[in-house]
């Protein structure tokens, strides 16, 4: 209802209050999100070091950034990490959801067990897995004391494999959550369709492959969006699990940005890397949000 010129006081008041109520949030969002984004993007074109300065340097920071082997490592790691993390979480989540959907006795007990890691801080997860995977006191040691002396599992200390331990811990933390999303999707499927398919003689395998999984499209999409943005944001887990090491073997863009900005005093380059992270997420999120909000109208 827009107020017309001849509206009475109450109508006009009732037209303004909603906008007034929304405005603090709106103002905060415009300043703290979009204003800050513009500021950071601007900084990425300046010669900022310890503190923001405003000497314009054009694309220099981006130039430098792309020539840093450090950045390249973090991008390669990101590719490995995000790819495996998304695929494995989706597979485990879907698998567990399908299995749990078979009228499992004790579902009420299993579900919270699968889900609880989601309630933990990545710092806690990192701490736990760090010691669990430590060859000195963790799994390897346990296997040795149990008599399997040739067992070797030192990935967390190994430059080539350390990134996979990050994947492992991240999967541990979020796959239960993905399971819950798929389970909700499965429970939402009309049973009559399944009965009809069974009447048509579809085997369980075909039932899932041809009828059920295609209907989970929205759950797949949501899982992908949530997992990919979590992957790009992954920061605390690496800090707690490997500290970015050994060496720089598990550096990700998020940790790269942090160390360049706050410990190496290369704010311009840090801002440039943050801008690239934002663009990547935007490329995934904007089409998704657009589609979601479109169909609601």
């Amino acid at each position: 209802m827009a107020a017309s010129a001849d509206a009475d006081f109450k109508t006009r008041l009732q037209n303004w209050i909603p906008k007034l109520v929304l405005s603090p949030s709106l103002a905060m969002m415009l300043v703290f999100v979009y204003g800050f984004i513009l500021f950071s993007v601007y900084l990425s074109f300046t010669d900022s070091r310890i503190l923001p300065t405003f000497g314009w340097v054009g694309w220099e920071n981006y130039d430098k950034l792309w020539r840093l082997s450090h950045w390249e490592t973090s991008l390669i790691n990101m590719g490995i990490f995000a790819g495996l993390y998304i695929v494995i979480c989706t597979c485990i989540g879907l698998g567990l959801a399908i299995f749990l959907d078979q009228k499992i006795r004790g579902e009420g007990l299993l579900r919270p067990i699968y889900l609880y890691p989601m309630a933990l801080s990545f710092i806690v997860t990192g701490t736990a897995w760090k010691w669990f995977l430590d060859p000195g006191i963790g799994l390897e040691n346990v296997m040795h004391t149990w008599g399997w002396t040739s067992f070797e599992f030192d990935w967390i200390k190994n430059r080539d494999y350390a990134i996979y331990t990050v994947v492992l811990a991240a999967v541990w933390q979020t796959s239960g959550f993905v399971m819950a999303m798929f389970l909700a999707g499965l429970r939402g499927i009309d049973n009559e369709i399944l009965r009809a398919a069974q009447m048509d003689g579809a085997s369980n395998w075909n039932l899932y492959r041809r009828i059920i999984i295609p209907q989970l499209r929205p759950a797949f999409l949501s899982a992908f969006v949530i997992l990919s943005h979590l992957a790009i944001k992954t920061f605390d887990l690496v800090i707690a699990l490997t500290g970015g090491g050994p060496g720089r073997a598990t550096e990700l863009p998020a940790t790269f940005m942090y160390s360049y900005t706050f410990t190496r005093n290369q704010m311009g380059i840090g801002a440039a890397s943050a801008t690239i992270m934002l663009m990547t997420i935007a490329a995934i999120m904007i089409p998704y949000l657009y589609a979601e909000l479109r169909e609601k109208r």
């Binding site: 827009a2 107020a3 017309s4 001849d6 509206a7 009475d8 109450k10 109508t11 009732q14």
Partner: peptide, 25 residues
């Protein structure tokens, strides 16, 4: 009822013009 605005024309109740009057009034 006044729940949707009238684009043009008039609605009167007991000869009172109701355009822009709040539903409760």
């Amino acid at each position: 009822a006044g729940l949707e605005e009238i684009t043009s024309g008039e609605i009167r109740i007991k000869d009172q013009v109701m355009n822009g009057v709040h539903p409760s009034n």
